[in-house]
């Protein structure tokens, strides 16, 4: 199954900047990125290996497609070439509800819904959301987020003034609308591993993405109480940005449960019986968490 990520956020929130980073930094994975407009992307022409109408192929294996008039047909066309990429990222339009786009993954067995990442322009969002024609559009986007990126915080954090209070008020406003973890950034600088996972499977334990983040892996020999684990993940949602693992739950010890968390969204699906693995692995539960250092520190002590 191909991981499917949707990047949302109102006009000017930094979606294109984020996608430029993704395309520039992608090394071990071939992303297919569906964008509204090639023109806005900042792609070094020397890295373009092929340009055919609606598609650009890059030297690092990534593909860029313009969505044109219909996301549905663009996506279905892309899936005809599913062997050429490892992860699909869709740039939602500035007024679209990215959650609705992510729903497509539920209709397509080849897709695995990964996350809805919504960028928010720290300097502008309150004013834009106060416009009655845009209020509901912007609030829907924020409510759809699995992970929120509060972008351009440098524009509201001025140590000389009292705008630190603005940032605190902004955080409160976002928290009132969404349970999603909030990640603060300037110029959409977010470790890509946090947004898209560190490898094709999701995340790995041994690649600390940056100084502020930590990863933590855990192995249980005994069956894991389902309720306890989901409660723990729910509690930690605002600090755990991703989790991935195969767990043997106490209520279904004979089957693998695949746990996948992106931001506030936890998905647990059946991974088949333990016995049928060609590697004959032991039924140990393994879970890898990735998140903000202080939060993970607390978890570790529990």
């Amino acid at each position: 199954m191909i991981p499917f990520t949707v990047i949302g956020g109102f006009l000017g929130a930094g979606k294109t900047t984020l996608l430029n980073r993704l395309l520039g930094e992608a090394v071990d994975r071939r992303f297919a990125v569906l964008v509204n407009d090639f023109g806005a992307l900042d792609i070094d022409s020397r890295l373009v290996t092929a340009h055919g109408g609606d598609t650009l192929a890059l030297a690092n294996g990534c593909l860029c497609c313009t969505i044109g008039d219909s996301l549905v047909t663009t996506l279905l066309d892309l899936l005809e070439r599913a062997d050429r990429f490892d992860h699909i990222v869709v740039e939602a339009s500035g007024v679209a509800d990215p959650g609705r786009i992510a729903d497509l993954a539920a209709l397509e067995p080849r897709l695995q819904r990964d996350g809805v990442i919504v960028l928010v322009d720290a300097a502008e969002v309150r004013e834009r959301a106060a416009d009655r024609r845009l209020t509901d559009t912007i609030e829907r986007q924020i409510r759809s987020a699995d992970l929120l990126i509060l972008n351009k915080v440098d524009l509201v954090t001025d140590p000389g003034g009292d705008s630190g209070a603005d940032l605190a008020a902004l955080r409160d406003w976002l928290y009132r609308q969404s349970q999603a973890p909030l990640f603060e950034a300037c110029r959409a600088a977010v470790p890509m591993g946090l947004l898209f996972g560190l490898d094709r499977l999701g995340i790995t334990a041994d690649a600390p993405p940056s100084a502020d983040f930590a990863s933590w892996s855990y192995t249980w020999r005994e069956p894991v109480p389902r309720q306890a684990l989901t409660d723990l993940l729910h509690d930690a949602q605002r600090g755990v940005l991703r989790a991935k693992g195969i767990v043997r739950f106490d209520d279904s010890p004979d089957r693998r449960s695949i746990v996948h968390l992106v931001g506030r969204r936890i998905e647990i699906r059946d991974g088949g019986p333990w016995g049928d693995s060609p590697r004959g692995d032991t039924p140990d539960s393994r879970l890898v968490l990735l998140g903000l250092k202080p939060v993970l520190g607390c978890l570790k002590r529990q």
């Binding site: 219909s70 996301l71 549905v72 047909t73 996506l75 279905l76 609705r100 786009i101 729903d103 497509l104 209709l107 397509e108």
Partner: peptide, 10 residues
């Protein structure tokens, strides 16, 4: 809506 369109094309 999008589900209808997606499934028809699919």
């Amino acid at each position: 809506e999008m589900a209808a369109k997606f499934m028809a094309y699919r």
